[in-house]
C-alpha cells in the first residue's frame, strides 16, 4: 500500500527526515512513535503533499504509484487521508457542508455518484452517532469554537465518511481525555479492514492500548531507529525515548 524508500526531506534548507524506510501493507496498522521534533509530523505532511517540504532524496510509492507526483487534492481523492494534529478553523463554512463537499469530491473521482442531501444526512447521522457526536456541532462553522476533543472526533468522522485507503493520523490522541480517547480509538478500529492501511503517529503508548498496532516504529532525529511488534511501544512507555536517542548518538 505504502512504501517509503530512503526518504530525505528538508524544510527551509534544514534536513528533517534523514532517510526513512517504511512499508505499510494493506490491512495493516503501524504506529510511528518519537519524541518532539523527531520529524513525525513532517512525514505526515510530506505524505499529504503540503507545500514547503522539499524531498531531497528517496521516493514514496502508494499503491505502486509515485505519490510525490500528485497534487495534495489528487492524493486525497486517491484515498490518502491525513488526520490533522491541529484541525484548521474555517469560519462561515458549516462543518456539514464542508464534509459533503469533501465526500462528493472523492466520490466523483472514484466514479461514484455524488450523495444527495438525504442519503448524505443519513450516513452522517449514523457515523456521528457512533462517535457520540452532537449533530448540532456539524451545523457550526468548521472547527470554530470546537473543543480539542470535538475537533479530533470530527477528524475521525471525516475519515469515516471519506472512506480512505491510507489514513495517516497525526497525534489524534493528543488533548483527549480517557473517555474521548476510547471513542476515537473505537472509531479508528471500526475502520480497520483488509483494504485499508493506517499509520498512527503518536507520542504515547496510551493510544496503542486501544488501537493495537501490527508494527511499531521509533523515529528519532529523522531516522527510524527501531522497529518491532506492539511490545516495542511498551518498551518506549517504560523507558522513554532516551535509550533510543543515546543509541542514535553512539551510532
Amino acid at each position: 500500500m505504502l512504501e517509503i524508500r530512503n526518504l530525505h526531506v528538508a524544510v527551509d534548507g534544514k534536513e528533517i527526515l534523514k532517510g526513512i524506510d517504511l512499508a505499510v501493507g494493506r490491512g495493516e496498522v503501524h504506529a510511528l512513535m518519537g519524541p518532539n521534533g523527531s520529524g513525525k509530523s513532517t512525514l505526515a505532511y510530506v505524505l499529504a503533499g503540503r507545500e514547503g517540504y522539499e524531498v531531497t532524496k528517496g521516493e514514496v510509492l502508494y499503491q505502486g504509484r509515485n505519490l510525490l507526483d500528485l497534487a495534495p487534492e489528487e492524493r486525497a481523492r486517491e484515498g490518502v487521508f491525513l488526520g490533522f494534529q491541529y484541525p484548521v478553523e474555517i469560519p462561515g463554512v458549516a462543518a456539514m457542508n464542508f464534509l459533503k463537499a469533501a465526500v462528493n469530491a472523492v466520490r466523483k473521482h472514484r466514479g461514484e455518484d455524488e450523495l444527495d442531501a438525504i442519503d448524505f444526512l443519513k450516513l452522517v447521522r449514523d457515523k456521528a452517532k457512533a462517535l457520540k457526536m452532537d449533530g448540532e456541532l456539524l451545523k457550526r462553522p468548521l472547527n470554530v469554537g470546537f473543543s480539542g476533543g470535538e475537533k479530533k472526533r470530527n477528524e475521525i468522522l471525516q475519515m469515516a465518511m471519506i472512506d480512505p485507503r491510507l489514513a495517516v493520523l497525526d497525534e489524534t490522541d493528543s488533548g483527549l481525555d480517557i473517555d474521548a480517547l476510547k471513542i476515537v480509538a473505537a472509531g479508528v478500529n471500526a475502520l480497520r479492514g483488509p483494504e485499508r492501511a493506517i499509520l498512527l503517529i503518536t507520542h504515547y503508548q496510551r493510544l496503542l492500548n486501544y488501537i493495537v498496532p501490527d508494527r511499531v516504529h521509533v523515529l528519532v532525529d529523522g531516522r527510524i531507529v527501531k522497529s518491532g511488534g506492539k511490545k516495542l511501544a511498551l518498551e518506549v512507555d517504560d523507558q522513554g525515548y532516551e535509550p533510543f536517542t543515546a543509541g542514535e548518538k553512539a551510532a
Binding site: 503533499g49 495534495p72 486525497a76 484548521v88 474555517i90
Partner: peptide, 24 residues
C-alpha cells in the same frame, strides 16, 4: 493552512477559496 486542509479533503484550491469566500 486553510487551503491545505481543504485540499487534503479532496477539494481543489479554487473550490476551497470559493467555499471559504462564500462562507464569508
Amino acid at each position: 493552512d486553510q487551503l491545505f486542509y481543504c485540499q487534503q479533503r479532496g477539494l481543489s484550491a479554487e473550490d476551497a477559496v470559493s467555499m471559504i469566500v462564500n462562507g464569508f
